[in-house]
Deep mutational scan, measured.
Amino acid sequence: MQRVNMIMAESPGLITICLLGYLLSAECTVFLDHENANKILNRPKRYNSGKLEEFVQGNLERECMEEKCSFEEAREVFENTERTTEFWKQYVDGDQCESNPCLNGGSCKDDINSYECWCPFGFEGKNCELDVTCNIKNGRCEQFCKNSADNKVVCSCTEGYRLAENQKSCEPAVPFPCGRVSVSQTSKLTRAETVFPDVDYVNSTEAETILDNITQSTQSFNDFTRVVGGEDAKPGQFPWQVVLNGKVDAFCGGSIVNEKWIVTAAHCVETGVKITVVAGEHNIEETEHTEQKRNVIRIIPHHNYNAAINKYNHDIALLELDEPLVLNSYVTPICIADKEYTNIFLKFGSGYVSGWGRVFHKGRSALVLQYLRVPLVDRATCLRSTKFTIYNNMFCAGFHEGGRDSCQGDSGGPHVTEVEGTSFLTGIISWGEECAMKGKYGIYTKVSRYVNWIKEKTKLT
C-alpha cells in the first residue's frame, strides 16, 4: 500500500490518463441519441435557420407576430419608411378606419389613436360632414345658397324668414311668412316636400332668348283662358290664391305678392273693366268669414305684352289694390325667389296649380277651390304637342294621358313649387288646347323671366 501511494504521488498524470480511459469505455446513459432527441424537440425550422439574422431580410411573422416588435424591426421587413409607417399605425392600436367614419364618399386613412378623412370636392370637416359648395344638395341650405369668396357655403332665406341657429334652416321672422300653410287642420295635408338634388348652379339658368321682337298675326285659340281631375282644397291650404270678379264672377285667378299687390295673367284683364279681388276665398257660393274683398285701382301688364300681336306672350300683369290686405292664416303671400332659384325650383319637376275653373272641358265651374299636382314636361315634348308657338318664356306641365289639367277660369292662378315646406311661385296658368285632352298640356308663363320686374313694381313704400 505504501508503494502504491508513492507511485500516485510521483505520477499524477498517469492516474488522470487511467481515469479518462475508464470513462470513455463506459456506456453513456444520461444523453439520448440524435434521433430520439429530435422526437422530443420537434420544432419547425425557421426561415433563416442556421444563418445569422443580421444578414437576412426581415420576416413579418418572425419579427412582429411571434413577439412584439419595434418600429426598427418592422422597418427591416418593409425596407421602406412609408410602408412601415402605414403598417405601424394599425399594428400599434388597430384600424381606426374600420367603422368607416368618413361621410359623403370620403376616404379614410388610419393613424395612431386617430384617423384622417380625405374629402371629395365640396366637403370638409373631420368626417367630411361639412358642405362647402352650393353645387351639392344646395349646400344643405333649406332655401338659398351662395358661395363666399373663400368658396364656403353661405345660406340665406327669402323675405319674412331668418336663418336658424344651425345656419342652414329657415324659420319665420314674421307672423305670416310667405308660402307657408298655417291653418292647423290643413298642415297635415301639406304636399310632399321637395329635397334639393345635386345641381350645376353655374349652368342652372337656361341660355334662352326671349323672342321679344317676333311679330306674329293673332292666333285663334280655343278655350285658351284655361282644375280638371283635381281635388277639393281645404280652407287655408292655398292662402296665396285669390279669385278675380268682373263682368262675371271667378273669371280668373291670381296670387298675393304682398298686402297691396296681386300677380295674374295679362290676358285676364281689360282696361276700363272694374275688377274686384277676393282673398281668403274657399267656396265661392258661401260666406265663410275668411274672405277679404278689395278693388283694383291700377293694372300693370308687362311692358312687352301686346294682345294685338299675341294674347299669351309675356302673359303676366300686376294688380294694385285700393287697401292693403290683412295677412292671416287664410290670406298669405306666395314666396318669389330670384331668377336663378325660381328656375331651379321649376326644374324640380312638379308643381301645384289651383283655381275655381271648370271641372271638365266646357263644363261647370268649381264651387270649392280645386288643386292638382302636375309634372313638368320637357321642352321637346311640349313643342311636338301643339302647332302653336311655345315661346321661351312659357313652359308645359300636365299629363300625356289627359284627364287632369287646369281649365277655363283658372287662368292667372299660381303654379307653385314647394321647397322644404315653403311654396314659391314658378308659373302662372296661361293657356292650353281644350282641357285635359290626351297628348295636350297646360301652358304656363315662366315666372323666372319676370321676377325682377315683379319685385321692382310691387315694392311697398
Rank of each mutant, 00 (worst) to 15 (best):
R3H: 05
R3W: 11
R3Y: 06
M6D: 06
E10H: 12
I15C: 05
C18S: 04
C18I: 12
Y22K: 01
E27W: 02
C28R: 00
V30P: 12
L32S: 10
D33N: 07
E35R: 06
A37F: 15
N38W: 10
K39N: 07
R46K: 10
R46M: 13
G50R: 07
G50V: 06
E53D: 06
E54K: 06
G58D: 13
L60I: 15
R62D: 04
M65N: 10
K68N: 15
K68L: 06
K68Y: 13
C69L: 05
F71G: 15
E73C: 07
R75E: 15
V77G: 15
V77Y: 10
V77F: 07
F78G: 15
E79T: 13
E79L: 03
E79R: 08
T81W: 05
E82N: 15
R83I: 11
T84L: 05
T85E: 07
W88F: 15
Q90G: 09
D95L: 13
Q96H: 15
Q96A: 12
S99P: 12
S99I: 10
N100I: 05
C102E: 01
N104H: 15
N104W: 07
N104V: 04
N104E: 08
N104Q: 14
G105F: 10
K109P: 02
Y115R: 15
F123K: 06
G125Y: 02
G125V: 02
K126R: 10
K126W: 08
N127D: 05
N127E: 07
C134S: 02
N135H: 14
N135K: 11
N138P: 13
N138S: 12
C145S: 03
N147T: 13
S148F: 07
S148E: 09
A149S: 07
N151F: 05
K152E: 14
K152A: 09
V154T: 08
S156V: 06
C157T: 00
T158W: 02
T158V: 06
G160V: 00
R162G: 03
R162C: 03
L163G: 01
E165P: 06
S169F: 07
P172T: 08
A173M: 11
A173R: 05
V174F: 04
R180Q: 06
R180W: 04
V181D: 06
T186F: 08
K188S: 09
K188V: 09
E193T: 05
E193F: 11
E193S: 13
E193C: 13
T194G: 10
F196L: 10
P197F: 08
V199I: 10
D200T: 05
Y201T: 05
N203L: 09
N203P: 07
D212G: 08
Q216D: 10
S217A: 08
T218Q: 09
D223T: 12
V228T: 12
V228M: 03
V228W: 08
G229Q: 09
F238S: 04
P239K: 00
Q241Y: 13
V242M: 00
V243Q: 11
V243R: 12
V243C: 04
V257W: 01
I262N: 00
T264A: 07
A266W: 01
H267N: 04
G272A: 06
K274R: 12
T276S: 05
V277D: 00
G280I: 02
E281M: 09
E286S: 10
K293A: 05
R294M: 01
N295I: 05
I299C: 06
I309R: 12
K311W: 04
Y312D: 02
D315Q: 01
A317N: 00
P324Y: 03
L327G: 01
S329Y: 07
P333R: 02
A337L: 01
K339R: 10
E340H: 05
I344E: 12
F345W: 11
L346N: 05
G349T: 07
G349Q: 11
G355N: 10
G357R: 07
R358D: 12
F360K: 12
G363C: 07
R364L: 09
S365R: 14
L367I: 07
R373L: 08
L376T: 14
D378T: 03
R384E: 09
K387L: 11
K387S: 07
F388Q: 15
Y391L: 11
G398R: 09
D405H: 12
S406K: 05
G409T: 07
G412I: 07
G413H: 15
V419T: 05
V419D: 02
G421Q: 14
T422N: 03
I429L: 12
W431C: 15
E433L: 07
E433V: 05
E433H: 14
K438D: 14
K440F: 04
K446N: 14
V447I: 15
R449K: 08
Y450R: 01
E456R: 04
E456Y: 08
E456C: 10
T461D: 14
T461R: 04
